[in-house]
């Protein structure tokens, strides 16, 4: 029973912070609301026997990714994000579609076929002690999922190269080429 009360409080905070992010007109406030939401999810992970993922969530998401977001927002000076849109008919249509999506998702989740297959969590049996600990997750990661792990490493390398290429200031070389082109035009 204390679990249900804790779940209700955390779920409320998570949903309210998500709505706060959705409706805020300042990008920095939106990022901070998202940090609250990510922290709530981290607490859920902690309570769901996933301490390793909770720590990764805090360091990678609330740490690295949100710092990157805040850095870009402040670098660009793009804090003001007005709510208004040029397409007036879009907002009601979007809300209707989102509510339809939610209704369909819940309808499927509560259909007898799905509910019949859902297993409610029991206390961790003694033979599964250490479930979700860094050691256990690491053993699963390197034993059963070694190839996907290598692929993710490759993905990160490609992303890193892509970011370097994308943010490289290419005004100088193009200016140089166009100068050359103009010079050759004049010569001709």
């Amino acid at each position: 029973m204390p679990g249900v009360i804790l779940f209700a409080i955390l779920a409320l905070v998570a949903i309210l912070s998500a709505i706060g992010m959705l409706t805020s007109t300042n990008a920095v406030h939106a990022a901070l609301f998202l940090v609250i939401n990510l922290a709530c999810i981290a607490v859920f992970f902690l309570g769901l026997s996933a301490p390793f993922l909770a720590m990764v969530q805090v360091t990678v998401y609330a740490g690295a990714i949100m710092v990157l977001f805040l850095f870009v927002i402040m670098l660009l000076g793009a804090e003001r994000v007005p709510l208004s849109s040029r397409l007036r008919w879009q907002a009601p249509l979007a809300i209707a579609l989102v509510l339809a999506l939610l209704a369909v998702t819940l309808l499927v989740a509560f259909s007898p076929q799905v509910q019949g297959n859902l297993v409610n969590p029991r206390p961790v049996p003694p033979e599964a002690q250490g479930f979700g600990s860094p050691q256990a997750v690491g053993e699963t990661l390197f034993a059963r999922y070694l190839l996907p792990f290598q692929m993710v490493g490759l993905l990160l390398l490609v992303a890193m190269i892509g970011v370097v290429v994308l943010t490289k200031d290419e005004r100088k070389p193009t200016g140089h080429i166009s100068e050359n082109a103009q010079a050759s035009d004049r010569a001709a």
Partner: peptide, 15 residues
């Protein structure tokens, strides 16, 4: 750390 606090039905998390 690996005590399970949320022994609530899985459908709550799905919602």
């Amino acid at each position: 750390l690996n005590e399970t606090v949320f022994l609530v039905p899985t459908s709550y998390f799905v919602i």
